[in-house]
Simulated scan of single mutants.
Amino acid sequence: MNKKAMINLTIISCSLLLGCGGSGSKKTEQPSPTPIITTCAGQSLESGTSCITLENREAIVYKPSNTIEGIAVFLHGAPGSPKKVSKIFNAKSISDSEKLISVSPQGINEKWGWESVNDSANAKQADVDFIVNLLTKIRTDNNITTDKVYIFGYSAGGFMAYKLACQIPGHITAIVSLAGQYRGDFSACSTSTPVTVHHFHSPQDREVPIKGREVGEIKSVAETLAHWLLINGCSETFNTVKHPKVSSTSNGTETQTWEGCVKEVSFSALNNVPHEASYSAEVLKQIYQPIFN
């Protein structure tokens, strides 16, 4: 074999040995790490939010960058989720502008979302007790000394907001209910403690009719408001203001606010808005803004 052939053979051999290192081993590529998705209440967490657990339930929490001056609680519908109701009202925006820590917890009733019916025995109090304990935990963990608590409920979450206004009015500053009224017997709500109320509802809502329905013991919006007008000591006189539309399909909003109330009661009629809609959180807030006064 001539010298040139031997040199070529040597080059080929070295290539097979991966650079003439002599080991003959191949370099193994490491797989890319699987991204970790943090979840809460069964859904992915958005940037800036966190998750807490209490009594085997999870709740999404968002803390404003400035000083915390109170708590905003967001109650989901059925079916629904803490993440969905947080988006409907834009919990982050409310937290930042009003200096409130927002918390969106899970309900325990698979069909109704929450144990929101009011009956003479008031036997099902698990959700009421849970919210009280949740408020205590949020205050303790974040050193909150104010008593400001705002309840935001959508659909079944609105049902639960009214139950809380009945059962623990001393813990609540105001409730905002979107498409969800009182459930059960008014005799089970004998409180005389006023709570600020702002109710949003559309006459075109078919899932939760503004006139109420027997299934689920859902009272009409008129009956619901009349109960709180009495509790809050309002007169029969009200002022009417026109507001922008809360969804692309709406023709506008008309808000009634009653006079002489110890705590304000308002009702916003959402013209031509279905139950499930792409609500404008910004417009909703523009309308209920007086609850923060």
Rank of each mutant, 00 (worst) to 15 (best):
W112Q: 11
A126L: 07
K92N: 10
Y150T: 02
C40V: 08
T67H: 13
I71R: 00
T67Y: 12
F89R: 06
V73N: 01
W112M: 14
A41M: 07
T39A: 08
N118A: 11
T49S: 10
T145V: 13
D147F: 12
L134T: 04
Q106E: 15
T67P: 11
G70Q: 07
K99C: 11
T53S: 14
N142Q: 08
W112H: 09
K87T: 14
L45K: 00
K83Y: 11
K111V: 10
N90G: 09
N109C: 01
R57A: 01
S95K: 12
K63V: 12
T136K: 12
P79G: 12
N66M: 00
H76M: 06
E115R: 13
S102K: 09
E110C: 07
N143C: 06
C40K: 04
K83A: 15
G42V: 05
Q43M: 10
S44K: 09
L135Q: 12
F89L: 04
G113C: 03
R139E: 07
K92Y: 03
E115L: 13
G70A: 08
H76Y: 04
A78H: 05
F74L: 06
E55Y: 02
N142V: 07
N133I: 00
V128I: 15
N90S: 14
A123H: 12
N143P: 06
L54D: 00
W114H: 09
T53W: 01
I108V: 15
E115S: 09
V117D: 15
Q43E: 15
K137Y: 12
T136W: 07
H76G: 07
V61L: 01
S47T: 15
A72G: 14
S50C: 01
V117K: 14
I144L: 02
T145D: 14
V117A: 13
R139G: 05
G80R: 11
S81M: 07
T39G: 05
D129M: 02
T49C: 05
S47H: 06
G77M: 02
E110T: 15
G77F: 01
K124W: 08
I71D: 00
S102Q: 13
T39W: 08
A72L: 01
N109P: 02
V73S: 02
